[in-house]
């Protein structure tokens, strides 16, 4: 049964790469304003799950509803839906040939059809929000990793998405730069953004997540509030994974 109140409703999702089954029937519901953390060993399918949620990967089977709209329906305008699903990548993927501001305004102008001035205003507001108001004219190569990732978050936020997907947003960062990115995510959460985060930042998960989902071998093993997953995991696989992480 699709949950009509859900912001993201994934049901029976399957994805195969050749003979390898990476997602083996995933069911996941994310309610508005919820922050769901997805953890699990590498190769467990968590990134693939996230990438299916805006169809960067095409699932083989199942259903993905975002705010009630079926993403896998061929009649769905996927580009319009993607504007409502913000995506933040591990490697930032800023456009190196454009200024930070132009990175943000590109989709506003070309996809939403906003005027140059309007797009600039929105872009500058988004940059101010991630603490980069003074970097609008800089090129990505002139920024630190943490600043690049915040700019990438601003690029997604500027489109006013209904939900944001974070694919290991801090994994490519030097430890001392992680904090600034997490601070931005914390601010987004405070503002009521619905978020799905694939990450190994367990401390952040414990502190900020509403719910933690543990995945292994293409399936969800268990999910629950962070106190339960980190404090009293029910499943042996969850326990051994968390033990490897030192809690």
């Amino acid at each position: 049964m699709p949950d009509s109140a859900a912001m993201l409703d994934v049901a029976g999702l399957r994805k195969r790469f050749g003979t390898l089954e990476v997602l083996r029937g995933i069911d996941l519901t994310v309610r508005p304003q919820e922050l769901v953390f997805v953890i699990g060993p590498s190769g467990s399918g968590k990134s693939t799950l996230l990438r299916c949620c805006n169809r960067l990967e095409e699932p083989d089977e199942g259903s993905i509803r975002v705010d009630g709209v079926e993403l896998l329906d061929p009649r769905t305008d996927i580009n319009a839906m993607r504007r409502q699903i913000g995506m933040v990548f591990q490697s930032f993927n800023l456009y190196p040939h454009m200024t930070v501001l132009a990175n943000i305004t590109l989709a506003l102008r070309k996809s939403l059809g906003k005027s140059r001035a309007e797009a600039r205003d929105i872009g500058e507001a988004a940059l101010a929000r991630v603490g980069l108001a003074d970097k609008a004219g800089a090129y990505p190569a002139q920024l630190s990793g943490g600043q690049q990732q915040r700019a990438a978050i601003a690029r997604a936020v500027a489109l006013e998405p209904k939900i944001m997907l974070f694919d290991e947003p801090t994994s490519a960062l030097d430890p001392e730069l992680v904090g600034s990115v997490l601070a931005v995510m914390r601010e987004l959460r405070g503002a009521g953004m619905t978020m799905v985060v694939v990450s190994h930042e367990m401390r952040f998960a414990r502190e900020a997540a509403d719910r933690v989902v543990f995945m292994d071998a293409g399936a969800i093993v268990e999910e629950g509030p962070p106190e339960q997953i980190f404090g009293a995991p029910r499943h042996a696989r969850t326990r051994s994974f968390l033990a490897d992480f030192g809690g």
């Binding site: 960067l56 993607r82 590109l106």
Partner: peptide, 29 residues
Amino acid sequence: RKGQWEAARSTGLTFVQTLVWVILPQAVR
């Protein structure tokens, strides 16, 4: 890199828009 395609498509740009505004300017340079 593939990430450039993915980032652009994830903001709702079409294939052609991505090619014209993101990929070709970098490739040509």
